[in-house]
Design a protein around this nucleic acid. Structure first.
Lengths: 204, 204
DNA sequence: TACTAAAATCGACACGGTGTAGACTTTGGC
DNA sequence: GCCAAAGTCTACACCGTGTCGATTTTAGTA
């Protein structure tokens, strides 16, 4: 706990291994962008990172751990940015900003997002990560609905449940659109925004 | 093409093999209900159907083919029932009926539905099957929206795109709710119905 | 500079699941 | 009873995962 100790920690923080770790994760993301999880082999991952399979298992206990770490990295990035968002905005503004953020997120990390969703069931770790992320989104949407006048509460037709449903709508719509094209992503975003506004009572 | 030939065909229609085929599919559905696709092994499938692995490969070329056939069977069942639906109803009625049908569908075949969705990407055959099903739903929702007065067209804020988004909302919401409980399924349905009605301009 | 412990890497292996091949048995029409 | 097609089995080859122990590299320390 001494300063000296901390210094050593910091110095060792960028040791060779961390570079490798990042290289593995980067390779994973690149491979995921065009092969789908199943098709990606541990050998591919290792080769992409410039090491052998055996060496890779020094960093990660399994293929699942690699992709879990990748999802964690992406999601952490997302959390940081959403925390930076001022929450007290005018509803219409808040919705527009949120959708813009979502477009960026899916543009930059679509393959990882899709993989995370696909593996949520079979890999509990990823499921937890994604569930927590969805909760964040869901809560944000709910908050906007309430601020716009939708009745608060947990009934099937009240803000909370509606926020959840709209969250799933956005997730799934972007999931598909991100496989098409950036343009399709923008169109999808416009549609989601429209329905969100209507649900909030902010549009005819 | 003679009557005799047809009779023979019909007689051979329930030959031993067809029973086995159904047994394999039934086993697959049962196993999928509590294990997830990856965990299900061809050996399990064969054992459940009372044959050996080798014999199973006489009926299906691969594990993927088995689950594809299962999805096809389920989806065919769904198509039949939705074809039986009268299309020219009053919007509110149509929506209520559609949601009721959807609850039944997910109650009876939740695990298969979820598996189909999960494998849509990695198994093109299943992706096509599911995509076609989604198109059907999407079109039905769109039709109701238009009949309720939403502007027809393919713009991001017009009926077609909205129908798609609502379709995804329903899919994802039921996907999650069907993992919880029948009660949660009904709650989820109520929420989706509510948003659908609002989007159609049929509710405050 | 030489020593040493931890970090990193490798090659070889065992295991489990998939799909194939060929031999054998059952079934049902003639 | 004969025979072809349908159905079934056992054994095998292949591939990807994850483990293990030996070896090399790295970086503090004397």
């Amino acid at each position: 706990m001494t300063g000296d100790h901390a210094a050593r920690r910091r110095r060792t923080a960028d040791r060779k291994g961390d570079l490798r770790e990042r290289a593995i994760l980067d390779t994973c993301e690149a491979l995921l962008a065009r092969q789908g999880y199943d098709a990606v082999t541990v050998g591919d991952l290792a080769q992409g990172a410039g090491i052998t399979r055996g060496a890779l298992y020094f960093y990660f206990g399994s293929k699942q751990e690699v992709v879990t770490a990748l999802v964690a990295r992406t999601v952490a990035h997302l959390w940081e940015r959403s925390r930076a968002t001022a929450e007290a905005e005018e509803p219409r503004q808040a919705i527009a900003v949120a959708m813009r953020r979502t477009i960026e997120l899916w543009s930059d990390h679509g393959p990882v997002m899709r993989t995370a969703i696909d593996l949520s069931l079979s890999v509990p770790e990823i499921g937890a990560l994604w569930s927590r992320t969805a909760d964040l989104f869901s809560a944000a949407i709910t908050a906007v609905l309430e601020r716009a006048g939708v009745q608060a509460g947990t009934g099937p037709e009240q803000a909370s449940a509606m926020g959840r449903a709209l969250c799933w709508m956005i997730e799934r719509t972007f999931y598909h659109a991100s496989q098409q094209s950036p343009q399709e992503l923008r169109r999808a975003s416009a549609t989601c925004e429209h329905i969100w506004l209507i649900s909030a009572g902010l549009k005819a």
